[in-house]
Nucleic acid binder design. Structure first.
Lengths: 184, 184
DNA sequence: TATTGTTATACTCTATAACTATA
DNA sequence: TATAGTTATAGAGTATAACAATA
């Protein structure tokens, strides 16, 4: 995220500047036989749009002292039965190694937002459970979070939302497909 | 990126597991008045698709020893006249603070991929210039990079590409719009 | 005074390897 | 042997503040 004191340029970027720069991208790429502007344009838009959306929501989360990952942990717990989850499963759902989950859980536990206890049937596993404090924090944040999402997205028509979801999903599947074929 | 030795789960995630978890997201959200699944679904797809795409291309870049940011610097230089650019402009184009550009430029200069020289008319500014070694590295990578993009995206029809670009662009503009209104 | 780049610091996120304790 | 979690380490990436040189 660009620091606050240098953000003036962003206003320029979204209008003229970005088109100007993307023109350069297109002209530079034209030197390569396999360069295909419509494809590149899709990827550029994916990256920039993700960036803008992430920054928007990350900024809101940071106001309640949560990083996107920390928020993600709380949401996963909240959605699970008994509001608890094995660290192993957290690791798999968040596509992050177990080693990194340890640190993340540590910091959330230190703040009293979650608790950690050994599983009774398999003493290797740790069960992470939402604490009252974490629950309250989520309950305080989620209504405005969902409202904000809805407010921004409401400028897309239902048909546009549906199309965008379908196309993103299709695009993602194309990458997955490549990975699968790479490991026969 | 998930470490190699734990990647087996990813195959599961793409098919059944993701739908299962997203069902939980939808049902959990239903408790909130402003929760609007189609909107949330768009954002989830944006985030996951970005993640998959980034990992795909980042892995290819890491094979020639470049991080996405480092690659970005080289591309920006390559597209500029004289293959050079002020650090100030790099900072603005990459939406990153000047302090961070210093380190990024340092590491690329140390590897001999770029060079840094003071501007002759304004001695405050540093001009970063592509070095022969950096140029060769890009020339070696770009053909297959563009080919790979085209190959994957070729599974979208021209109409789908056009629609996806337009919708992502529109979605991004909605976030920008919010930001603008936030600073009247 | 404002701008450019630098230094210093810190925090988040991630990857890897080696270790332990269980199973 | 395989799995769950931990520790230790390293490297990106980013945010912030304070500073020097220059305009």
């Amino acid at each position: 995220m660009l620091p606050a004191f240098e953000r003036g340029f962003m206003d320029t970027l979204q209008d003229g500047k970005m088109r100007y720069y993307w023109d350069r991208v297109r002209h530079h790429g034209a030197r390569y036989a396999k360069f295909h502007w419509p494809s590149v344009e899709v990827i550029l838009n994916l990256v920039y749009t993700y960036d803008v959306a992430l920054n928007h929501f990350a900024k809101r989360m940071s106001k309640i002292g949560l990083s996107p990952s920390a928020f993600n942990v709380l949401m996963i717990l909240s959605r699970h039965d008994e509001k608890s989850c094995k660290q192993r499963d957290l690791s798999k759902l968040m596509l992050v190694s177990r080693a990194n989950i340890t640190g993340l859980v540590d910091s959330l536990a230190k703040r009293g937002l979650i608790s950690r206890a050994p599983d009774k049937t398999d003493r290797r596993v740790c069960i992470v459970r939402m604490a009252k404090k974490g629950e309250r924090l989520l309950e305080q944040f989620l209504p405005s979070h969902y409202e904000e999402m809805r407010r921004i997205l409401s400028n897309l028509t239902p048909a546009e939302e549906k199309t965008l979801t379908a196309l993103l999903s299709k695009l993602r599947s194309l990458f997955w497909q490549q990975k699968k074929e790479g490991r026969p």
